[in-house]
Amino acid sequence: MIKSLERVFSEFVIFLGAARLRALFLLIAGTGLVSLMLNAVQGETWVVPVQSALMLIAAFGSAAIIVTRMEREDRQRWIALLVPALGLIVLGVFFLPNWALALVGAAIGWIVAGLIVFRGRAPIEYQKAIRHLRHNEYEEAVKVMDGMIKDEPNQPNHYRFRAELLRLWGKLDRARRDYQKMTEIDPTSAVAFNGLAEVNLQAGRFTDALAAAHKAAELAPGEWVALYNLGMIEDRLSQSQNAIEHLTQALSAGVRDARHRLLIRFYLVRAYARLGDTANAQAELITLRKDKSGISEWTTILASDQAETLRAVIGQDVELATQLISGELDVMALGAAS
Rank of each mutant, 00 (worst) to 15 (best):
L172R: 03
G114D: 05
I124M: 14
A53K: 04
N242M: 06
H158V: 08
I116K: 13
I264E: 00
R270M: 03
R72C: 07
G222W: 02
L302M: 04
L101R: 08
T322R: 08
G30E: 03
K181N: 10
E73F: 14
M55H: 12
V269G: 04
K181I: 09
E308W: 11
L310M: 15
I314W: 00
F9H: 10
M182P: 02
L24W: 03
G105E: 04
R131P: 07
R259I: 06
I233L: 00
T68C: 13
A212Y: 00
R75C: 14
R270P: 02
K181F: 08
L219N: 06
Y272L: 01
A18F: 07
I89K: 09
V225I: 12
E6Q: 12
D257R: 14
A113V: 09
T68I: 05
L133G: 09
L210D: 04
V144I: 14
Q316Y: 09
R265L: 10
N194E: 12
E140N: 15
V104E: 04
G120D: 02
A190F: 15
N157Y: 08
A23I: 08
A192F: 09
P49E: 04
Q155Y: 11
A192Q: 09
G120S: 12
S238M: 06
R274E: 07
G294Q: 00
I130W: 14
L54T: 13
G315E: 07
I65Q: 07
L227G: 00
V117E: 06
L268P: 03
V8D: 11
G120R: 03
D146K: 09
L56M: 10
A258N: 10
I124Y: 11
S10L: 11
A192K: 07
L219W: 05
G276E: 05
E140T: 07
I244V: 12
G231C: 03
D186L: 00
R119D: 06
L115K: 12
L262V: 00
G276I: 05
Q249N: 15
V90L: 10
K181Q: 15
R274I: 01
R311T: 08
